[in-house]
Amino acid sequence: MTEYRRAKIPGATFFFTVNLAQRRGNRLLVDKIDLLRRAFREVKDRHPFVINAIVVLPEHLHTVWTLPEGDSDYKTRWSLIKAGFSRRIPAGERRSDSRVKRGERGIWQRRYWEHVICDDGDLERHVNYIHWNPVKHGWVQRVADWPYSSFHLYVQRGVYCLDWACDSEFTIKGGE
């Protein structure tokens, strides 16, 4: 078995995509948003990091984090967030034989996708992608209408206007 290699750059900024194991028709992340927020807070209290941007959709989330100087351990943070959220959800989800054998829940996909942010332009593209994602997936018509997004903080800070990306010419390049 080939070991999956992840970037380990202390103090770096990373873009992540994290998915539920069962995506079709699943609304767990938004239905249990308070439990997800609690899991994030608890991990941030013990293992600090900055959430630069985030969007939580019903069955997946995207986020950009900056880790503290000298720290490259996002793997532990994600493990703790996933476990903290999962512990608060009543058991009953479908689990594969391998998950049962390992004593794992079946809430999250085991893996997640990360990308090292390489410069300010890359950061801007990923933050825009994050905020545009609810529109991309058809959950809302306007970015401002999705409540589970850091977009609203960006509006408060004057980075975006409330009707950002409402222009029909607006497009975001990138993917999940």
Rank of each mutant, 00 (worst) to 15 (best):
Y148K: 12
R99G: 10
A39S: 09
E69N: 09
F151N: 05
V18P: 02
I81F: 06
S168F: 02
I33L: 10
W139K: 10
V116S: 08
D163G: 05
A12Q: 01
G25S: 08
G70Q: 04
N133K: 15
C166D: 11
I89V: 14
T17A: 10
Y154W: 04
V56P: 04
R142N: 10
Q141E: 03
R5Y: 09
D145N: 15
G103S: 06
W65V: 03
W78V: 05
I130F: 14
E3I: 15
W139F: 12
C166R: 09
D119N: 15
G84E: 09
F170G: 04
R111M: 14
A53N: 00
H137K: 12
V55Q: 03
K8E: 12
R23D: 00
A7C: 02
K82W: 08
S168K: 04
A21L: 10
R41H: 10
R102H: 00
H152A: 09
R111K: 15
L67Q: 01
Y129D: 07
R6W: 05
W78I: 09
A53Q: 02
N26L: 07
K44S: 04
Q156S: 11
C118Y: 13
L80H: 08
I107L: 11
H60D: 00
G175W: 11
V43R: 03
N52L: 13
L123P: 02
D73M: 09
K136C: 13
Y160H: 13
V50C: 03
E59V: 02
D97F: 15
I54G: 01
D119P: 14
V56I: 15
A165P: 02
L153C: 01
Q109C: 15
L162W: 12
R6V: 11
P10Q: 02
R46H: 07
S98P: 00
R38Q: 14
R77V: 02
I81D: 03
W108R: 14
Y154L: 05
C161Q: 13
I107Q: 00
M1E: 03
R94C: 12
E42H: 11
E176W: 15
S72T: 00
L61D: 09
G103C: 08
N52W: 11
V43Q: 00
N52H: 13
F85P: 08
N26V: 08
P58R: 08
L123T: 08
I89C: 09
G25M: 07
F151D: 01
I89A: 08
S72I: 03
T66G: 04
R46K: 12
I89Q: 09
R87D: 07
R87S: 06
R102F: 07
G106R: 13
G106Y: 12
D122I: 11
A39F: 11
V64A: 04
G121Q: 08
D45Q: 14
H126Y: 14
G11I: 04
E3W: 05
A12G: 13
D167G: 05
T76F: 01
K8Q: 13
R41E: 08
K136S: 10
A83D: 10
G25F: 09
S96H: 07
G103E: 06
G25R: 09
V55F: 11
R77K: 01
